[in-house]
Amino acid sequence: MKIKKVDVFAARLPLKEPFIIAYDQYNDMPTILTRLETAEGTVGWGEAVPDQHVTGESWDSTFQIIKHELAPLLINESPFSIDLIHKKFNNKIDGVPSAKAALDLALYDLMGKITGQPVYQLIGGKSHQELQVPQVISIKDPELMAVDAHRYVKAGFRNIKIKVGTDPSVDIERIKAVRNSIGRSTKLRVDANQGWDRIQALRVIRETVDCDVDWYEQPVKAYDLKSLKEIRAVSHAKIMVDEGVHNIHDLVNVVEMRAADMLNIKLMKSGGIYPALALANLAEAAGMPCQVGSMVESAIGTMAGAHLAMGRSIIETNEMVGPLMFSKDVAAIQYHGDVIQFSDTPGFGIEVDEYFVKEITSFSCEIK
């Protein structure tokens, strides 16, 4: 089977409320959706959620890179030639991981549909009984974050992640307020998104020792592995690296420096499922548990991440929360409480609403 057509849609997904993290605020979520079609009519869907602060890509630039540089490389290729295709991508242009992920995901969706298998069966089989998802709370006043957290726990969520990374004094209040609101039986994770320096991070970690935080994620700038190592050396809780690792070369540096306990793999940072598998394998060799993180993707990117998490035992946690944050999505995903549901349907197991995709699309193109 050969790929005969690539459609690219620059769309904006409606959020239930603004999403606020240390470095930006999102009132809606810009995304790039890709649709691959074979000569036989089989269709696979992919997605890019670029982030100028993380992947170095913008919404517009990602659309143009896919349209002019990457998508043409797929015409008349087999979707199963995943290694060759990634080599072609990398020879054509360096970086641009979310642009590459948009096509990589669609290739895996295609492979699953062609073989009649869910994607997780293609990458390792079912490694977990279930995937629990957390609720992620964006930056607000401490009291409001505590109210949100309490409401989510009442709704059945067993894991709460909070965004911090502004003023350390207020961040300490946020962490304490949320812990007090959810009790001790609910797990709590803290993500600073590079918002602190070393001294600030050490202060926050020290002054929240009684909050029983599972881990502190990316407390300092992505490039500052020395500070990350120093923080890890004295932290009572685990330290997770996120923005500091995009590819296996970054991970080698983290492992050699012993700079982190855990790794947050994101499809948009790594360039898709294929390079993400390499990260998971290297992390497993280093004894470093992983998480599949979210860039607030639609149902497409979310289920891609869920299949990745399901297919690798070293991926112990996930944040497949994007669909919970949208007022309407491009496909339906089922959650049973805080557990994401899988089906035996081939590919990512979702039915994309192409009419809604066109409704939220600002501009698009077709490559043949």
Rank of each mutant, 00 (worst) to 15 (best):
L277E: 12
L277S: 08
D250G: 08
P289T: 00
L282C: 04
V252Q: 14
N281T: 13
Y274G: 01
H246Q: 15
G272Q: 07
G272R: 08
K266C: 04
A278F: 12
Y274Q: 15
N247V: 02
D250P: 07
G272C: 08
G287R: 09
C290R: 00
P289S: 02
V254P: 01
P289N: 03
H246T: 10
N264D: 14
D250S: 09
E256V: 15
L282M: 15
I265A: 12
V252D: 15
I265G: 10
G244Y: 00
E284Y: 05
A283L: 10
N281K: 14
M262I: 12
R258S: 13
P275A: 04
R258C: 10
I265L: 12
N253G: 09
Y274M: 14
A259T: 01
N247W: 06
M262D: 03
N247G: 03
N253W: 05
Y274I: 11
G272I: 03
I265P: 07
P275R: 10
L263N: 07
I273S: 00
E256Y: 12
L277P: 04
P289M: 03
C290M: 03
I273H: 02
L263R: 10
G287S: 07
N247Y: 11
Y274V: 12
S270L: 02
N253V: 11
V254T: 03
M268C: 10
E256M: 13
L263Y: 07
G271F: 06
L279R: 01
P289A: 00
P289C: 02
P275N: 06
P289I: 01
I265F: 09
H249A: 13
A276P: 04
D250K: 05
N247S: 12
L279S: 02
N281H: 13
H249K: 12
H246L: 15
V254F: 00
G244C: 02
G244A: 10
A286N: 05
A286D: 05
H249V: 14
L279N: 01
M288G: 06
H249Q: 14
V255N: 08
A280Y: 01
A285W: 08
C290P: 02
V255F: 05
M268L: 05
D250L: 10
S270V: 01
A276W: 03
V255M: 14
E284F: 03
A276H: 07
K266R: 15
